[in-house]
């Protein structure tokens, strides 16, 4: 074992002996900048989370999860049940569409398309699609779906699915890339066709990584507001578990509308909804971390 503290001391002495003062000062300043940047980024995270927890906790109760939204937003009372259910259902609907499409798309890109021109185009466009503003996705679903079929939770699912799709495609492709070719060759050697190889060998091998990418996509989608505002009928106050008919509301939309009011009760409700939403989003983010950490451990072992 080397004594690290000795090494550092020696390094410092060497530096002082060989480096001019102005160069050392510049180096220190750069370090201050780098550490300072981390601090500057951590501070808002800490402040925002602290506020949400402190102000949101008082809104939580049994009623919060079970009761309908109050008819009059400026008065206290009522709950957030319909919005919690709405967020979960709309996001689940989006995931059910985006996951199979995204994984299959990634299978095409990596297992079939490879370096071909079409695969290159799809890959590039998937990257570009991640940059399409979520409000534009909302307008898109409004024009192609809501104008024809009316307001419903499913419109929100479609919009969120469009946001999740490119994320899942790209993260899944990265994971397929990590599957060693020897596994594929082994499967071919056993007489498996390519599709069986993909389904029974490649996808299971990449499963952990794919799940982790999917979780992150879900976390991102669950917090989206803009694409939902005008496609789900967000003014709904009572519980609706049918994605395909009737107005539905969601946590993010409730935060948005309650934050715009000057009433204390509504603002408390917004903080409570924010706390609930952050809890859901962090849960998925941390799950993704745990899954990917476990996968990494298995790879290293």
């Amino acid at each position: 074992m080397t004594d690290l503290s000795f090494d550092r001391e020696a390094e410092r002495l060497l530096l002082e002996a060989t480096t001019s003062r102005s160069r050392r000062v510049k180096d220190r300043l750069a370090s201050v900048w780098m550490v300072g940047s981390v601090v500057v980024a951590v501070v808002p995270l800490a402040i925002v989370v602290a506020y949400v927890v402190a102000k949101g906790a008082s809104a939580l109760s049994v009623d919060w999860f079970t009761k309908d939204l109050p008819a009059v937003t400026r008065k206290a009372g009522g709950g957030m049940g319909p919005a919690i259910v709405g967020t979960l259902l709309i996001t689940a609907g989006a995931a059910l569409m985006a996951i199979p499409l995204g994984v299959l798309g990634a299978v095409y890109l990596h297992e079939y398309g490879g370096r071909g021109r079409l695969a290159g185009l799809i890959r590039f466009m998937a990257d570009v699609m991640t940059g399409v503003p979520s409000i534009v996705m909302g307008l898109f679903i409004y024009t192609v779906f809501t104008l024809r079929f009316g307001l419903m939770g499913f419109g929100g699912s479609l919009a969120l699915a469009c946001l999740m799709l490119p994320i899942i495609i790209r993260s899944t492709e990265e994971m397929l890339r990590l599957v060693p070719d020897e596994l594929r060759q082994g499967s071919y050697a056993l007489g498996n066709r390519q599709w069986r190889t993909v389904v029974t060998v490649v996808l299971p091998a990449a499963f952990g990584g794919i799940v982790s990418g999917v979780m992150l996509a879900i976390a991102r989608a669950a917090g989206e507001t803009a694409p939902l505002v005008f496609v789900i009928g967000a003014a709904a106050r009572s519980l609706n578990t049918d994605l395909f008919s009737g107005n539905m509301t969601a946590l993010s939309v409730q935060i948005f509308s309650n934050a715009q009011t000057p009433f204390a009760a509504a603002q408390t409700r917004a903080w409570g909804a924010a706390l609930t939403l952050i809890a859901i989003v962090f849960l998925f983010t941390i799950l993704a971390r745990v899954v990917s950490a476990r996968v990494a451990r298995r790879h290293n072992a």
């Binding site: 995270l45 925002v48 669950a222 917090g223 948005f256 934050a259 917004a270 924010a274 952050i278 989003v281």
Partner: peptide
């Protein structure tokens, strides 16, 4: 990890704050 969490906070929550 902290940067990931920062990215995970929904934009509406930043707006509320």
């Amino acid at each position: 990890y902290v940067m990931d969490l920062l990215a995970a906070i929904p934009s509406v929550v930043y707006g509320l704050w």
